[in-house]
Design a binder for these strands. Sequence first.
DNA 1: CATTCAATTAATGAACTGATTAAGTGAAGG
DNA 2: CCTTCACTTAATCAGTTCATTAATTGAATG
Lengths: 118, 118
Amino acid sequence: MAEPDIACTDHAHTPRKYQIADLASCQLAADIFRALGDPSRLRMLSMLVHDELCVSEIADALGDNLSAVSQRLKLLKSERIVAARRDGKHIYYKLSDHHVKDLVTNALAHVSEPHDHH
Amino acid sequence: MAEPDIACTDHAHTPRKYQIADLASCQLAADIFRALGDPSRLRMLSMLVHDELCVSEIADALGDNLSAVSQRLKLLKSERIVAARRDGKHIYYKLSDHHVKDLVTNALAHVSEPHDHH
DNA sequence: CATTCAATTAATGAACTGATTAAGTGAAGG
DNA sequence: CCTTCACTTAATCAGTTCATTAATTGAATG
């Protein structure tokens, strides 16, 4: 009886032991990438590479409303990508650590390199 | 109080020049992060760090159906994260370059580090 | 050429995302 | 207190994403 077509059966290729990350690690890492994977959020992060900034400053600079910026920051904070600090009436956000800074900086540098078009 | 040099109670009246990445670059970089930002895709990529593999091998190892794997690979290929090569009946996929390999490797290493509870 | 195999593509739909508007919170200053 | 300011949260909803099933492609082999 015919197996449902799941995969190649011949395996002419060498049988291998696959190294494969565990699901939990992939979930955690993917959550971080997903948080970075939005143009608006990434643009905010690009601002925070240089400065600690409050929500209104970010909103002003981007021409977005406060609520949108606040909600994006909340998501980034939940992934520990940014950290918040209150000072009087303002809440200042900054990148959590140098890993994040490197990720953002390198990614933006990378896409600015010359590419062949697709 | 220890006010940092960014004191901006009055930021609306103190126009500052923010360093802010252009939208196009953010869009490109975010597209790549978004492609990495899915546990299933990231797990496939973790396999490809070590080996060049055909679609069926990946599907077998992950216990996913061919179609799902193929469609994920298509997306990753469209972002130039993986590259494909036909050999006979099989199509082998590998990571496009060392940048991708580093991103995946570092991300998975990072989430495996000890963390304080949240 | 017809068949089989490996992979891709199409089509559908449930679940998720992100922007918007409005309402709510809490610190600061009167 | 009461108000204002800076921000957060809630609620809604259009748009997107992802897995699943079925149909299709194209290389390889009889």
